[in-house]
Computed example of a mutant assay.
Amino acid sequence: MTRIESKFAQLREEGKKAFVAYIMAGDPDVDSSLAVMKGLPEAGVDVIELGLPFTDPMADGPTIQLAGQRALEGGMTLARTLDMVRAFREGDDTTPIVLMGYYNPIYSRGVDRFLAEAKEAGIDGLIIVDLPPEEDEELCLPAQAAGLNFIRLATPTTDDKRLPKVMQNTSGFVYYVSITGITGAAAAEAADVGPEVARIKAVSDLPVIVGFGIRTPESAKAIAGVADGCVVGTAIVGQIAEGKPVADVLSFVKSLSDGAHSA
């Protein structure tokens, strides 16, 4: 059982919803992002999504695109991202970490090498936005063989015919994208999300976590109330972009996690 699977089993036993937080590795610099990362569990974060900076992040809105650019300009690489995970693991061996990004940096490093390094560093799962299920042999199946969960995205445009294909090799949890378009583009609405979560649960036993368009404790509570939990990324990255002190960023994260956990 991976850390991700253990965490969701624990939350289920406690009758709690999950709160997942996204930050970009190396934004605005390695030390600052590591300080935020280390503070996330105490701020109520159940699963950390760590963004892997990439030059052409097609699913990301301006806030996360700029975070990736800042990280890359600061010298952040895949190897340094894994070093950041190792540093986090020195003090926390239980909080699940999902690496979220695009396939190009992994392909460039070599799949076998990357998976061995990611597992050793303490990564628990992958969300690779630009690898569809038709390409499962490329990374998904090798990742699962290496003991990493491969988490797939489902969207409002994933119809009933497509959904079983998307779910076939997914593990850990399902990430439901609540809106069409890029991150941070619109607000998620619980009334729209609820039926979609039910549709996914009809074909999968995995927890369904909803992301995109959640910016406030109130929206975190509303969305977590119709799913197994929620993800917040753009709103947190926006706080970092504004130059807020680490303590203030973590206080904001705590308000969001309190919202999700009260659902």
Rank of each mutant, 00 (worst) to 15 (best):
F150H: 08
I151R: 05
R152I: 09
T155A: 15
P156G: 04
T157G: 00
T158H: 05
D159F: 07
D160A: 15
D160S: 15
D160C: 11
K161V: 15
K161W: 10
P164L: 10
K165L: 13
V166A: 08
T170W: 01
S171F: 08
G172D: 11
F173D: 03
F173N: 02
F173K: 12
F173H: 10
Y175L: 01
Y175G: 01
Y175D: 00
S178N: 06
I179N: 13
I179P: 00
T180G: 10
G181K: 11
T183M: 02
T183D: 02
A185Y: 01
E189H: 13
E189A: 12
E189W: 01
A191P: 01
A191Y: 01
A191W: 05
V193I: 14
V193M: 03
E196V: 09
A202I: 14
S204Y: 04
D205Q: 15
L206S: 09
P207N: 08
V210M: 03
G211L: 01
F212S: 00
F212M: 06
G213Y: 01
I214R: 11
I214V: 15
T216R: 09
P217T: 03
P217Q: 09
E218S: 05
E218V: 05
S219C: 07
S219W: 02
A220K: 11
A220S: 12
A220M: 09
A222L: 09
I223N: 06
G225R: 12
V226M: 12
V226S: 05
D228E: 13
V232I: 13
V232C: 14
A235Q: 06
I236L: 05
V237Y: 05
G238T: 03
Q239D: 08
A241Q: 12
E242Q: 14
E242N: 11
G243Q: 08
G243A: 04
P245G: 06
P245C: 10
A247C: 04
